[in-house]
Design a protein around this nucleic acid. Structure first.
Lengths: 213, 213
DNA sequence: GTTGAATTCGGGGAACTCCCTGATGCCCGT
DNA sequence: ACGGGCATCAGGGAGTTCCCCGAATTCAAC
């Protein structure tokens, strides 16, 4: 029986492209499309597909949120993440939230078919470019540079607020912490990431999906 | 005779999608693909296509640079810009650099075909969503809020450096201007954009394509 | 030829960041 | 139980930003 697929991406052209690519594959059947998170959840509830192809970067509701809710409400629906960014942080979050696959948008079209096949059989499929990163992470490459988000929860929280444009003082207010504490975090973040200006932190945060663009 | 097209996009999947979409159209023929600017220029020199479908956001060489060089070396090659961002600034730059069309990635696939057709006939095609903005700009909507980048050249230059992470002092050094002057610009920028923190400026600059992510 | 926008600079002071050092309590793993 | 990572805070001072003011050019435009 064909795998029933729903494609979620906010760019119609990209969506249409994926559909066009999969159209010729006999084992799969595109049963629905959606262009944002809300719509995606509705479509899934209606159609109960086997597989979701999910773009991460979407307005309103991010792919992560969609992923999270799907995992709660429709745990049997497998999800392949389509992303532009080869970011360890992204991969980490996606897998944690129950994604079955993570493909970069620059994969060969054939790989999409392979991935669908693998996932149908219960495996997890990662783009070859990222599997190395993940394995490194798994191996506890905490040595120096690599690995998944090197920041603690608090640091991530503060980073987010920095990237949102809040000042040290504002952050300290919102978190009910002393200015000094936030200063410490900011310094720790900058040291760990080896980024030494706000602009760099903002770009980092955007790339990591911590704040929307 | 069929329009000979080269597709340039750094995401293979997207490229493959576009190709798949155009494959069925009899009037066009995809003769080549490229995944970055350098490759694109080479391909164009070799194949001398009629039309280029160009993604703006690419690593190494941005779509704008490619566009610029093509216009210099192969002025007869028409270019359709494919972009994710509905940014007046982007559209403006693209048209200035000689693009014949500007399509958002969320266009209906059919519109791509229409655009190709229109451009083949010497017209300019803009995604419906953006044509309004452009017309407003054309009408000299310099009144208050709207239009193309509201910043002066200097302000843009400073904004870029801010978004790159340079401090007021560093910028003043690089531009051989006094710190006070840069302070003035920064204040002017913030006032004009109604953005009052560095993080916001960085996000704005990224959205406008002034700095890469 | 005056008006206006763009570019350039300054003074001064309050506010804030940045950097360094040091410290406490807590929880976790061996 | 001890080391280590984490979260939390402090003091102090140099350096910067931020915000208020004002003002000189130049150049194009009306």
């Amino acid at each position: 029986m064909a795998t029933r697929i729903v494609v979620v991406d906010d760019h119609r052209l990209v969506r249409a492209g994926i559909v066009a690519l999969l159209e010729d594959i006999p084992e799969v059947e595109i049963v629905g499309e959606a262009s944002d998170g809300t719509q995606a959840l509705k479509t899934i509830a209606e159609l109960e597909p086997d597989l979701l192809i999910l773009d991460l970067s979407m307005p309103e509701m991010s792919g992560f949120e969609v992923l999270e809710r799907i995992h709660e409400t429709h745990p049997r629906v497998k999800v392949i993440i389509l992303s532009m960014h080869d970011s360890a942080e992204h991969v980490h979050r996606a897998l944690k939230l129950g994604a079955s696959g993570y493909l970069l948008k620059d994969v060969l079209p054939d790989e999409l078919v392979l991935a669908i096949d693998a996932i149908k059989k219960g495996r997890t499929w990662l783009s070859s470019a990222i599997s190395k990163t993940v394995i490194d992470g798994y191996l506890g490459r905490n040595g120096e540079e690599g690995a998944l988000s090197p920041l603690t929860e608090r640091q991530n929280q503060v980073l987010k607020m920095i990237a949102e444009g809040q000042s040290t003082k504002q952050i300290s207010g919102h978190l009910n912490l002393s200015v000094k504490t936030i200063e410490t975090y900011r310094a720790q973040i900058m040291e760990k990431l080896d980024i030494h200006d706000i602009a760099g932190l903002v770009r980092y945060a955007i790339r990591q999906g911590i704040v929307p663009l």
